[in-house]
């Protein structure tokens, strides 16, 4: 039985900060690859939350860890498809600048 000396709020603070950094990067990045990296940061923030709740509030039935596995799976699929779309866009538009991916804009 491992004692938990770090308070739960510390983990939640780190997760919230990581998520907000990810949101900021998602909004402000010009490079499309960096946008995908920001999305990965946000997913990791969510995962830290899930794992912290799983350990602190649901230590016997670790359902949060199950959800974390699903989030990791979906993140891997998202990264693969997202980067394939990015490659395809780069081949067609010859740029990775988010400001110039405006084909569907009025």
């Amino acid at each position: 039985m491992t004692s938990l000396s770090v308070p739960l709020e510390a983990y939640l603070t780190v997760a919230a900060s990581l998520f907000c950094i990810g949101v900021w990067g998602l909004i402000n990045s010009r490079n499309a690859v960096r946008v995908l990296m920001s999305i990965e940061l946000m997913l990791n923030g969510v995962n830290i939350n899930l794992m912290a709740f799983s350990t602190y509030l649901d230590g016997a039935e670790i359902r949060g860890q199950v959800y974390a596995i699903f989030v990791i799976t979906v993140a891997a699929a998202e990264a693969a498809v997202g980067l394939a779309i990015l490659l395809s866009l780069y081949r067609n538009r010859d740029t990775v600048d988010m400001e110039r991916f405006n084909l569907l804009r009025w």
């Binding site: 491992t2 308070p7 602190y56 509030l57 230590g59 016997a60």
Partner: peptide
């Protein structure tokens, strides 16, 4: 008010 400590850990 989080309900910590929760149930015992499976470790």
């Amino acid at each position: 008010a989080w309900a910590t400590p929760g149930p015992s850990q499976v470790g």
